[in-house]
Amino acid sequence: MLEIRYVWELPVRVSHWVNAVCVLVLSVTGFYIGNPFYPASDTAAYIMGWNRFIHFTFAYLFLASLIVRFYWFLFGNHHSSWRMFFPWATKSGRKAAITFFRYYTFTGPKLPYEVGHNPLAAMAYAGVYSLFVLQLVTGFAIYGQFQPDGFWFGIFGTLLTWIDVQTLRLVHHLTMWLLGGFFINHFYSAWLMDVKEMNGVMSSIFSGYKFVERDDL
């Protein structure tokens, strides 16, 4: 008998989609800022100006979304807890990770049965959240240079004396491509699991519900 379980709470779903939109918008505008690939027709245009404005606005939105998600790491249900980032810390987590890894590499026949994140995905999200934080730190450090007496320079000014800003810029740029690679992995894995697990994982990130058979757990 299939149960309908409420797995992803509202803050998780909202921050997931806000993050997705932010990463998309920030990547497109950020790519333009790094390499303005289409020219302006005349001096009255404001193409770089708008790209930068949108980039900075979505950076703040992204920051807000991550603050919400970090709050929910502490106060959400166990599927959204920060503990899910460390599946290798428990014996059952390690076992499930190995089973999943073997399935994924065609060396094992079956999937582990998971209600929330599968252990490999959880580890990938630990990496992705690290990249998110890296993007925010490098991004706001570069951004803060426009006003050396301002808030962001106050926070990251010291960082800029340790690491030169060109290195930060390169890291910011390369991390965008790493997040692009993550997106391909993430989208494909979700699709694959939707087909193979048959528990509605794709729709769960819209609705929060997954179909779980208690006997299989």
């Binding site: 399935y103 494909y188 694959l192 087909v195 193979k196 179909f211």
Partner: peptide, 28 residues
């Protein structure tokens, strides 16, 4: 970066093809 994206895309597309021929691994 583009090379990284292309390599990732190819790898996952290959995985998708292989997975679609896989039988008897659906949980429900």
């Amino acid at each position: 970066g583009l090379g990284l994206i292309a390599a990732t895309g190819v790898a996952f597309a290959a995985h998708a093809v292989a997975s679609s021929f896989r039988k008897g691994d659906k949980l429900e």
